[in-house]
Amino acid sequence: MSERRPKVVGFCCERHGLDAAVLAARSGRCYDASVRIVKVPCSGRVDQTHILQALEDGADAVFVLGCLEKNCHYDTGSIEGRKRVEYVRSTLADLGIEKERVEMFNASSTMAWKFPEIVTRMAEVAKRLGPIAKGGGDR
């Protein structure tokens, strides 16, 4: 039985976030299949309960990808998204859970290299830290 594969969830905004992922794919870049893209209209839609629920449901790492901060399609959406992510990170840290499991990224739709970079980084975190549940194993 091969070792358990890491599970990464990426909440991507439907604007620059998803477009960046699409451009990466279309420009011939591959990335780890561990990532599960969940699309939201704006990274500001994401709140702490979505991120924590994803961790509860078995994600080893979660990221939120939104537009560049001064260039958000919905003006201040990615700023809000970042605030939520920071709140989760400090909550996790307070609980003795590694805060690097959760991270916020910003990209513009033209940054073809960014999405694979993000996935590589989060997959590495997920592999290194393993599942949150004690003793490893699945779920």
């Binding site: 209209p41 704006c42 500001g44 839609r45 709140d47 919905y74 201040t76 809000e80």
Partner: peptide
């Protein structure tokens, strides 16, 4: 339709 309000 951005959903920021729903998030906060």
């Amino acid at each position: 339709g951005c959903g920021m309000c729903a998030g906060v």
